[in-house]
Design a protein around this nucleic acid. Structure first.
Lengths: 129, 129
DNA sequence: ATAGAGCTTGACGTTAAGGTAAACTTAACG
DNA sequence: CGTTAAGTTTACCTTAACGTCAAGCTCTAT
């Protein structure tokens, strides 16, 4: 029961266009199997796509993401290759931790700003009696 | 002692190129004063630039960022304008909180992956005696 | 059998975010 | 006084990440 999905189903689920999926495939971020000429997306393909979309939300480029993905399935990789990926991932993790800290701070600052704006808006409403 | 900086000083401090600063100005994200034709960046300009660069790290577009910046100095804005900005910022904050949660999760997952890779690498080294 | 829906490839267009190069001003220096 | 250094504008170039459109295949329903 290896549930595979068509391109349309993928698009509906993940809110992307067919063009996007084909583009990611061209960039070697995805590699769906074929049934004739039609693409079929496996469970792993779906997992990868989720990682891709998540990476994008964090501001990573597709190339950045491709390298991270390589680490998740370091199957055919040799030692040297794997080691390079490992070091690269260490950097990324540090970067992400830094980003998480900054993000938390930014949220706090914005919320403080929001309270200031609330006061201003309340004053506006008061002035209108 | 209103310490203002030249474009070069700004570039050195924030690791951007003059082109980038001029570009942000064209996009109305910055508005340095002039001394003759030369740009001079005030303390507020510096604060704004920091917010811009931070926003970029989170994957926001310059246009997204411009709207957020508007909230930080909602000086000449009228009620309707301010209210729209406020609602928009609420969305952004929700989005950022979501992003923070996801980021934390992603970090954990990556670190788990890393441990797996460490084992693989250790095995490689063992095989080499 | 033909008409349409859904898939394919291929090619060209578009937008954001700058890079790069040319021509010009202006201040400063020997 | 000439020239170099740092700034300016204008204009075109580039890259990433897709959008859009054309032309063709294949299956299913009418």
């Amino acid at each position: 029961m290896t549930q595979t999905l068509t391109i349309r189903e993928m698009c509906d689920i993940y809110q992307v266009t067919p063009r996007t999926l084909r583009f990611y495939e061209a960039k070697e971020l995805l590699s769906p199997t074929r049934e004739g000429s039609k693409r079929l997306y496996s469970k792993q393909d779906r997992a990868r796509l989720q990682l891709i979309l998540r990476g994008k939300r964090f501001g990573f480029s597709l190339e950045d993401i491709r390298q991270l993905l390589d680490m998740y399935d370091h199957n055919g990789s040799n030692q040297a290759q794997l080691n390079r990926t490992y070091l690269l991932a260490q950097d990324r993790i540090a970067q992400m931790k830094q980003q998480a800290a900054e993000l938390t701070l930014a949220i706090q600052e914005l919320e403080t700003e929001m309270r200031g704006v609330e006061v201003t808006l309340a004053a506006f409403r008061n002035a209108a009696e």
